[in-house]
Design a protein around this nucleic acid. Structure first.
Lengths: 237, 237
DNA sequence: ACAAAAGTGTTATGCATACACCCATGG
DNA sequence: CCATGGGTGTATGCATAACACTTTTGT
């Protein structure tokens, strides 16, 4: 039993994983808590950070232990440290954020007693701790991220149609259909998509299938970094 | 002496404060460490989080204790948790980020034995811990932030000229002068500036003085949020 | 009169937006 | 032959970017 000169908080990680399956809503991965506090409530996957692992490692480990979902890209979201956010005492939680497509990450095997489930983002249950706040922050981050990064990289399967991509954007931004012509023009103009074939056996004109070209994307990102220097402020907000 | 069932990390905060005084370089507030580890090295202001204060409160408290600088807006930057980042053991640090103008925050009174000093960002000394990484991340955040928020709010004095504002942008983005005509047109078109008078006693045509109009800014921000919904993706990166 | 910085007029270019239309496939 | 979603042509207006120019002050 370790003893310290001064009291110390506990440190946890929580992970917000958004999943997409082509439907009308994004989904969110939650677990049912098997122990107190908030036993029986739904919560974000997560848990205590071990002393010899990085925060990101802890996030990925807890996620796999609790939901079976693994092999994904995560980015740090925000750290929550209100003194009263956990009834067990001072617990500071580093929240992580991830995007996956549900085809590649369907597994929701609960390794211990807890259940794990994908919930449509518009039908979330009551959540333990301040996890509703964390999810709200993640949703905001996603809406911001979509503006400057092609989130389809993570949320869509390897090959997809422009219709699917547009549908994803409409879902994430929560809007009715925006103009098809302009969406296509803009996204194709960037050059980050490459054709890989055509749909088969669909009851309409078969769509061209595309794949993200990561090389082209990185090149575009570099050019844009240079352009910022000339264009400077946008004050888009 | 508190005893826990499992070992716990220590949690600290570090604060990156950028200051501007109209010069060619932004400045950064550092302290000279008065105790081990890294005694005598320069480092970011910061310290251990108390058990009953929020993270932001801890950041503001430590900043004032170590540098005398207070009354500023801070935002959370990133949390650093590599197991070996501190020789004292496992120390997880939540980094904060702030912008101030040096006229209003000149105070660099060292309340305890440590010294505090503003360093030009291109002449930084060697830094303790992973603080160089933290500063690099803060610099990146600033360059990104400048694109969608009017950072002049924090970095410039209450009243300023368009020349000063442009100079600030050139400094932050680290570029040679960009086109004056277009800078003026774009920024005035947003409507977030209001005239408040004219310069006096300058050896050239006196410039109009402006002040940020926070109401107009908020209105602009809202309109922009709406516009995102229609315009959708920009893929600017 | 001159230096120094503020401030303006004007143009081409390209992008965003809107609207109307045609195409290919399975049932 | 029709429902369904895929895909294209094009006119309009507006913001960006570039360049050359005028104005006002103190010394």
């Amino acid at each position: 039993m370790p003893t310290y000169k001064y009291p110390r908080p506990s440190v946890t990680v929580d992970i917000v994983v958004f999943g997409y399956d082509g439907g009308a809503q994004l989904k969110l991965l939650l677990i049912k808590r098997g122990s107190e506090p908030y036993k029986g409530s739904w919560a974000l996957p997560g848990g205590f950070v071990d002393m010899d692992e990085t925060l990101e490692t802890a996030a990925l480990r807890e996620l796999e232990e609790e939901t079976g979902v693994k092999d994904l890209y995560v980015e740090q979201l925000y750290t929550y440290g209100a003194p009263d956010r956990d009834p067990r005492g001072r617990v500071i939680s580093v929240a992580y954020f991830s995007l996956v497509n549900l085809q590649d990450h369907p597994a929701v095997a609960a390794s211990d007693a807890t259940k794990a489930e994908w919930f449509p983002t518009n039908e979330l249950p009551d959540l333990a701790f301040d996890h509703a706040d964390i999810i709200a922050a993640a949703t905001k981050r996603l809406a911001a991220k979509v503006r400057y990064q092609p989130i389809g990289f993570e949320l869509l399967p390897e090959e997809f149609t422009l219709g699917q991509l547009q549908h994803l954007y409409e879902t994430v931004l929560n809007v009715e259909a925006f103009n098809k012509r302009n969406f296509r023009t803009r996204i194709l103009r960037t050059g980050i998509l490459e054709e890989v074939g055509r749909q088969k056996n669909v009851a309409h004109r078969p769509a061209v299938l595309y794949r993200f070209n990561e090389t082209a994307y990185k090149k575009l990102a570099e050019e844009r970094d240079g352009a910022v220097l000339r264009r400077a402020l946008d004050f888009e907000i």
